[in-house]
Design a binder for these strands. Structure first.
Lengths: 134, 134
DNA sequence: GTATTGCTTTACGTTTACGTCAACGTCAAG
DNA sequence: CTTGACGTTGACGTAAACGTAAAGCAATAC
């Protein structure tokens, strides 16, 4: 069992393959490309997707589940790939990270609140049910 | 200091008042009414908002911050006001609560993942920065 | 060869969540 | 009484996130 086979071709996927795997349509995948969220290789006219594209796609979809607009998602995943060679670039990235965290933590507070309320509501319902049962 | 003054008029608000207080436009508030998310009292042609409407509005806005579509938000807040007199109704509501919780917990997992990744990324950036500084 | 399968681009359609006039009612202030 | 300030109902506009044909290339299947 070879740890890493340097001669092996890096695995690639077709648009139909990743679309199906991620549970979206190929139209959706191409839309993300139009917005610059993924940039698959081109072999002639065909799109070839690499692991990098899969990583990005899963980031995009998680962002969507969290309710972020695609444009904002792009700034986020671009952040992860941004050049960080110079000090000024690194400091910019660190500032962006802070903004992101503030946003995410706000969401988590909202989420926790919603879950707490839901729990309280369930309790009330269960009490009502118990009263009905006697 | 009266605990509860039964003779006191319940406090009400105008559309401009709640719009400004919640940081949205009156157009937005009326849009939520069009979708049946809030149903203010009508005094003639004017809308009169009560505490109940404010509660709903804050639920709506939190739902929006969490990225829920308005139609889904309506089913959620309607759930809180749903009749629960009969056993079958209560059991339906409890089932809905379970669905909601599943959804919210999924979101929380996504959110925690995103925050963890962000932390790891920040660490890497800080290491890079330290290397630049020597 | 041609028929099918899979991928491509182009382009218009749709839904959601409002923004943005337009045109009009109403009520207190001057 | 008319002028604002504030409110109202349409109704059309728009941006985002795709859906949905339409029409064509390209390789394999028979």
């Amino acid at each position: 069992m070879p740890a890493v086979d340097p001669g092996a071709q890096a695995q690639t996927w077709t648009i139909a393959a990743i679309a199906e795997e991620f549970g979206v349509t190929h139209r959706t995948v191409r839309h993300y490309e139009d917005l610059g969220l993924i940039t698959p290789e081109r072999r002639g006219t065909q799109r070839i997707y690499h692991r990098r594209d899969r990583t990005r796609l899963s980031l995009i979809l998680r962002g969507k589940r969290l309710g972020f607009p695609l444009e904002e998602i792009r700034t986020i995943i671009d952040l992860y790939d941004a050049p960080r060679g110079r000090r000024s670039q690194l400091e910019y990235v660190l500032a962006q990270i802070d903004d992101r965290r503030t946003d995410l933590e706000r969401r988590r507070r909202d989420l926790d609140e919603a879950l707490t309320e839901l729990d309280r509501f369930e309790e009330r319902c269960r009490e009502d049910l118990a009263r009905l049962t006697h």
